[in-house]
Amino acid sequence: MISSVRAFGLAAAMLLAAGGYASSAEKLILGNEGSYPPFSMVDASGKLTGFEPELAREMCKRMETECELVVLDFKGLIPALLQNKLDAVATQTKPLPERKAKVLFGRPILFNPDSYVVKEDTNYTFTKEGLKGVKIGLQRGSAQAKYIAEHFGDAVETVFYDNPDQIRLDLASGRLDMSLGPKISWTLEFLNKPAGKGWKFAGGDLWTGGGEQGSSWIARKDSQELLDRMNKTVDSIVADCTFTKLRKQFMEVVLLPEEKACM
C-alpha cells in the first residue's frame, strides 16, 4: 500500500508543480494525507478512500460543490494550503498554537487521544531519566513529534518518518523501542493485528494538540465563509446519523459524543 500512496502523492505533486490549483465557487481542492488507515488510504486500484475522504465527498455533495481530493504527505498539507494550492485540508489536524496562528480550525471531526506504544514486557517511567536513550519513531511534522521534543529533548533518540505505516514496520521489526500516536489508529492498524502481538499502550491518554482536545479540518485565514459552510454541512451529516453510517464502514469506535443519538 505504501507504494500506491507514494505513486498517488507523486502524481498530486506533479499537478501542483504544473501550475497549482485555482479556487472557485464551483470547485474545491481538498488535501488529504492518504496514508492513515482507517481514516484515509489509497486502495489497490489507486482510489483514495477511508472515513475522512468519504465524509468529505458527502460534505461536497450536500454543499453542491465539485471537489477534488489530493493526496500529500501530512507535513506538506499546511504549506500547500498557505500557497493557495488547496482550498482546505480534509485530514484530522490537531490545534497546535503555531498552526492556529496560520490557519482556521473547523468543528471537531473526532476525539482521539494519543498514547505510547511499547513492548508488553517493558515498564517505562515517562520522564527524561526514564526514557533516556530510548529510540522512538514519530511522524515528521506531527503534534506528537512536537510533544516529544518539548518534554524529552535529546534524552530520547527520535527517528522521523513520513507516514505511520513506516513506523509500524520498524516497530514490528525491532528497529524502534516505541512510538506515540492516536489510540484509535494504533489499535486498529497495529495492536489488533498480528504484527502488533507483544505490544501495548502505556503512559495513559495524552492530548498533544496544545492541550486542546479534538482534531479538525482546516482552511486558510481568508476562508472563514468556506469553513462556516463546511462546519454547517458536517453538522447536518452528524445530526442525521450519516456520519455514523460512514464511520461504521471503516471502524466500530465512536468518534464524536453526538454519535450517541445514532446508536
Rank of each mutant, 00 (worst) to 15 (best):
T244V: 14
G209I: 04
W186I: 02
C60P: 06
E66N: 10
L48W: 03
L171T: 05
D162Y: 08
Y36L: 13
S40E: 07
V234G: 00
G50Y: 06
S40Q: 02
S35F: 09
P79I: 12
L180Q: 04
V70A: 13
F152M: 03
T122E: 13
N231H: 05
L110S: 05
E258N: 07
G133P: 05
V103L: 09
E54Q: 15
L55P: 03
G133K: 09
K100M: 14
L55R: 08
A90H: 11
W199C: 05
T127C: 11
L86N: 01
T125L: 13
P97Y: 11
N163V: 03
E52P: 00
D73T: 05
S35H: 07
Y21P: 00
D87R: 10
L81C: 04
M230I: 15
F152D: 01
M14D: 14
A80M: 03
A202S: 13
K61N: 11
L96I: 07
L171D: 06
E212T: 11
Y147D: 03
P113F: 14
A219G: 07
I78C: 02
V159W: 01
S215Y: 07
R99S: 00
P95G: 11
E98T: 07
L104M: 07
A90D: 07
L69M: 13
R175P: 01
K260C: 01
I167M: 10
I148H: 03
V234Q: 08
L86K: 01
T187I: 00
V156L: 10
D162C: 11
P257H: 10
A22R: 15
N32P: 01
D222E: 12
N192G: 09
N192R: 15
L206W: 06
P53E: 06
V71N: 06
M63C: 02
T242Q: 14
K102H: 02
A7Y: 12
T122H: 08
A80T: 02
I167Q: 07
M41T: 00
W217D: 00
R62T: 01
E258A: 12
I218G: 02
T65P: 02
A25L: 12
L206N: 06
R229N: 05
L82G: 09
A90F: 14
F160E: 13
S173T: 12
K128N: 15
I78E: 08
G174K: 12
A149K: 15
K245T: 12
F74N: 04
K100E: 14
F160I: 02
L131I: 12
A17E: 15
A25E: 14
G50Q: 11
L10M: 06
M178I: 07
A101V: 00
L81R: 03
A18L: 12
P164R: 08
G211Y: 04
D154V: 02
N123F: 00
E54H: 06
K197Q: 13
Y36D: 11
E225A: 15
R107S: 10
C67D: 07
G141A: 12
E189T: 05
N112R: 09
T65W: 00
P194K: 11
G46N: 06
A80F: 05
Y147G: 02
K232R: 12
S4N: 15
S215K: 06
S115M: 10
T91G: 04
L86P: 01
E150Y: 03
V134W: 02
